[in-house]
C-alpha cells in the first residue's frame, strides 16, 4: 500500500481529546479514513436507504468500522470505495434478513428506529408513480433490489456490480432482468 502523508482533512476532523497518534501507519489510516468519510459518507447513506435499510446510519458506521479494522489489508486505497459499497450491501441484506426473522418470531415487532422516519419523510416527497415504483422495489428479493440500485442509481458496470455483490456477471444479468420484469409488471398493473 502506498504511503501517504496525512491530509488536512484528518486534522480537521481529529478528536481534540484523543491521544496523539505518532505511528506513521496509524496516521495514514486516520487520514485515509477521514478522506473516505468526507467523500463517500453521504452516498453510502443514500445507498443504504435505497437498499431498504431501516437504520442506514448504523449500517454505514458499521461498514466504516469494518474498513477501519481491515485498513492494512487493503491492497489499494482506491479499492476502499468498492469495499465500502460491498460492505454496505452485505450489512443491509443481513439487517433486512434479521428483521424478517425477528418479525416472524416476535408477536409484537419492536418499534422502528428514528432513521426510518427520515426515510419515510424523503419517500413522502416522491410522486405517486415513483412511490409505487419504490414500494415495488422494496418488495423485490434483496439480490434483485441490490442489482437494480447499483445499476440504475450508481450506474455501475456489470463486473462492478458482480464484485460488490460477490456473484457472477451472469447472475447480475439474471437479477437485473427479473427485477425489472417485476417492476414493469407492478407499474403495468397500476396503469
Amino acid at each position: 500500500m502506498r504511503r501517504r502523508q496525512p491530509t488536512p482533512v484528518a486534522e480537521t476532523y481529529a478528536e481534540p481529546l484523543a491521544l496523539p497518534v505518532t505511528d506513521p501507519a496509524e496516521l495514514e489510516r486516520e487520514a485515509g479514513l477521514a478522506r473516505l468519510f468526507e467523500l463517500h459518507y453521504s452516498s453510502m447513506l443514500r445507498l443504504a436507504v435505497l437498499l431498504g435499510a431501516d437504520d442506514p446510519e448504523n449500517v454505514v458506521a458499521e461498514a466504516y468500522y469494518q474498513i477501519y479494522r481491515k485498513w492494512r489489508r487493503l491492497r489499494d486505497v482506491r479499492a476502499a470505495e468498492a469495499y465500502l459499497r460491498s460492505t454496505v450491501c452485505n450489512l443491509t441484506r443481513m439487517r433486512i434478513r434479521h428483521l424478517q426473522v425477528a418479525r416472524r418470531h416476535v408477536e409484537s415487532p419492536p418499534e422502528l428506529p428514528d432513521e426510518t422516519v427520515a426515510s419515510a419523510e424523503s419517500a413522502a416527497l416522491l410522486r405517486d408513480d415513483q412511490r409505487v415504483l419504490i414500494d415495488a422495489l422494496q418488495q423485490l428479493p434483496a439480490r434483485q433490489r441490490e442489482a437494480l440500485v447499483l445499476r440504475h442509481w450508481l450506474g455501475l458496470k456489470e463486473s462492478e456490480i458482480a464484485a460488490a455483490m460477490g456473484i457472477s456477471c451472469g447472475s447480475v444479468k439474471t437479477h437485473t432482468s427479473r427485477g425489472l420484469a417485476a417492476l414493469t409488471q407492478a407499474m403495468e398493473a397500476r396503469r
Binding site: 480537521t12 476532523y13 478528536e15 477521514a34 468519510f37 468526507e38 459518507y41 453521504s42 447513506l45 443514500r46 436507504v49 435505497l50 442506514p56 446510519e57 428514528d114 432513521e115 427520515a118 426515510s119 419523510e121 424523503s122 419517500a123 416527497l125 416522491l126 410522486r127 408513480d129 415513483q130 415504483l133 419504490i134 422495489l137 437494480l148 440500485v149 440504475h152 442509481w153 425489472l180 417492476l183 407499474m187
Partner: peptide, 24 residues
C-alpha cells in the same frame, strides 16, 4: 422511471448529523 425515482428518493436523504460530527 426507476432512475428518476431512485434519484428523487436519494435526493431527500440527509444525514441527521453534520459530517464532522458524524465522523467524530
Amino acid at each position: 422511471e426507476l432512475q428518476d425515482a431512485l434519484e428523487a428518493l436519494a435526493g431527500g436523504v440527509r444525514p441527521t448529523r453534520p459530517l464532522p460530527d458524524a465522523y467524530r
